[in-house]
Amino acid sequence: MQRRLTFSMIKPDAVRANHIGSILAMIEQADFSIQAMVMLQLNHPVAERFYDIHVHRPFYKELCAFIASGPIVAMVLEKENAVVDFRKLMGATNPAEAAAGTIRALFATSIDHNAIHGSDTDTTAAGEISFFFAGREFV
């Protein structure tokens, strides 16, 4: 089976709560290889561009404000079945519904502050990776 890439972002709530190391440990223990990683703070216009797929949803403005509210950690992860396996590791968007032992079950505080983002398809992953990283930034 071919190794694939996916995109992940540790969100401002988890960064503020000092969960970066614990989340990275879970990612590595699940056999993901970190191919690129950067910590940065998005300004509001960049947050709006990143989440433009949700522009017509009622939560769009709050989502953009939240993601621009503090530093994030953006990552490119590699593994066989990367997208599917990472979504399992993250857990359900609503941490109250997330399986025990998943990132969101352990570190999220609400559906709005759910600690981490992960791509939902290979196509989305490719777009999200190119949004944050140039090829020269990969290991």
Rank of each mutant, 00 (worst) to 15 (best):
S22G: 09
S22V: 09
L24Q: 12
D31W: 10
I34L: 05
I34Q: 04
Q35M: 14
M37A: 09
V38P: 07
M39T: 06
Q41F: 08
L42C: 07
N43A: 10
H44R: 15
P45M: 08
V46R: 15
E48M: 13
Y51K: 07
Y51R: 02
D52C: 15
H54D: 15
H54N: 15
V55L: 10
H56G: 04
R57Q: 12
R57E: 07
R57H: 12
Y60I: 06
L63N: 04
I67T: 15
P71Q: 05
P71G: 09
I72F: 01
M75F: 04
M75A: 01
M75H: 01
V76L: 03
L77S: 04
E78C: 12
E78G: 02
K79R: 15
E80G: 07
V84R: 10
D85L: 10
D85N: 13
R87C: 02
K88T: 10
K88Q: 05
L89A: 06
L89V: 00
L89N: 08
G91E: 03
G91T: 02
T93H: 07
A96M: 11
E97H: 14
E97P: 10
A99I: 14
A99N: 14
A100E: 15
A100R: 13
T102G: 07
T102H: 12
R104Q: 02
A108I: 04
A108C: 11
A108V: 06
A108Q: 06
A108T: 03
T109W: 11
S110R: 04
S110D: 07
S110K: 09
D112P: 08
N114R: 05
A115L: 02
A115K: 02
A115Q: 00
A115R: 02
G118M: 07
G118S: 07
D120W: 09
D120Q: 10
D120N: 09
T121P: 00
T121D: 03
T121N: 07
T124C: 11
A125Q: 03
G127S: 14
G127M: 11
G127D: 13
I129Y: 01
I129S: 01
S130A: 15
F131S: 06
F131I: 00
A134K: 14
E137Y: 12
F138N: 00
